[in-house]
């Protein structure tokens, strides 16, 4: 009887483990050599997070359409891979299943990739956000110059602020999150010298409740314009809406979450990088190059909420700022 119970517990536990760890596939794996180009992606959050993971998912859908649909390119993904060990196992699985390109979409996956890539010399790997290819010739790296859109958002926010206080909800002080936050602060300070831009990092990419409380803190400190980066900001956007504060988005368009309060979003267009990577793979190069998306190469786009009535002078200033960053007349001085 005891043995039976143990076995039953084991089976139940394994069953639930398997439900939790299942991989979602858009398409059954096609195993023909001459078939479509096959891409696999591992992402830390959900494909519909309105932020980091969604920006990559949207890019893949776009590229697939450009290439002519599923006959030309198929992709599968594992999302919600916030446990790095699980992600590493998925990366290795995809590589051994013969995918042409395996993307590890998250800077936390770097050291795993460094270990796995040399075992699959005929597979191309890409990861970001980073500039580091580890000197391994089948790894591409990609990064976002997120300070650029951050700067533009900062300029608009400072121009619209009546209280002279802005608030930023950051995840962890690192990578493109830090670049975005520093860019936003620089843009606001360059536009309205002496403006107060309060920043708090909550120490998590996923804690929606704490992000929401961080936004409440900013509002209580007098902020009438808020921004934030990473997938946990959905809680903060609700706080902006509730308190009639403006919201500035990044990574993907967040307009639908608060249509009356989102002013503008910096949208990542990873398809720009992906097309370049696919061209290189086509020409026989499997890695070794790093890419940056920015306003100049169209990898970052400022998306204005059409339903928000932005005063004409602020709109003009925002557009001039974008142009200035592209042609180099505006340089962004980042903090330490």
């Amino acid at each position: 009887m005891k043995k039976f119970r143990f076995l039953l517990t084991l089976i139940l536990t394994l069953a639930v483990l398997l439900t939790a760890c299942q991989t979602k596939e858009t398409e059954p794996v096609v195993e023909e050599e001459t078939g479509p180009f096959k891409i696999a992606v591992v992402m830390p959050s959900a494909i519909n997070d309105l932020a980091f993971s969604q920006s990559m998912y949207d890019a893949l859908v776009m590229i697939q359409e450009e290439m002519g649909g599923e006959e030309a390119m198929t992709f599968v993904y594992s999302d919600g891979m916030f446990v790095v060990d699980d992600a590493a196992a998925a990366i290795r699985d995809y590589a051994s299943q013969g995918y042409d390109l395996v993307i590890a979409h998250g800077s936390q996956y770097g050291s795993s990739l460094q270990e796995i890539a040399p075992d699959f010399p005929d597979t191309s790997f890409a990861w970001g956000t980073t500039v580091d290819t580890f000197g391994i010739d089948n790894i591409f790296a990609y990064e976002a110059a997120s300070q650029e859109g951050g700067y533009v958002n900062g300029v608009i926010a400072a121009s619209l602020s009546e209280s002279g206080v802005l608030g930023v909800v950051g995840p962890i002080e690192t990578g493109d999150a830090k670049l975005y936050v520093d860019g936003f602060v620089a843009g606001a300070e360059a536009t309205v010298p002496g403006i107060k831009v309060n920043v708090n990092y909550i120490g998590s990419f996923s804690d929606v409740a704490l992000a929401s409380e961080a936004a409440n803190t900013h509002v209580a400190a007098g902020a009438d314009g808020l921004t934030g980066t990473a997938q946990m900001v959905i809680g903060a956007i609700g706080v902006a809406e509730e308190n009639d504060a403006l919201w500035f988005g990044t990574q993907a368009s967040q307009t639908e979450l608060a249509p009356a309060h989102v002013v503008a979003n910096q949208v990542y267009r990873w398809d720009v990088v992906l097309s370049e990577i696919l061209d290189l793979i086509d020409a026989g190069t499997l890695g070794g190059t790093s890419f940056v998306i920015d306003l100049a190469n169209g990898g970052e786009v400022m998306d204005f909420n059409p339903d928000f009535e932005l005063p004409a002078d602020v709109q003009a200033l925002a557009e001039a700022t974008v142009q200035g960053i592209i042609d180099g007349t505006i340089t962004i001085e980042l903090g330490e």
Binding site: T9, L12, T13, V16, L17, T19, A20, C21, Q22, K24, A46, N48, D49, L50, G80, I234, G238, E241, L257, A258
Partner: peptide, 28 residues
């Protein structure tokens, strides 16, 4: 302890699955 962890993983997986299938996107 072990079955509790099992139920945690079950809830995590199922809530995500239902979210993807029934809503598909973040809504308010």
């Amino acid at each position: 302890g072990i079955s509790g962890i099992g139920f945690y993983l079950f809830g995590l997986g199922l809530s995500d699955l239902l979210f993807q299938k029934m809503l598909g996107t973040v809504e308010t």
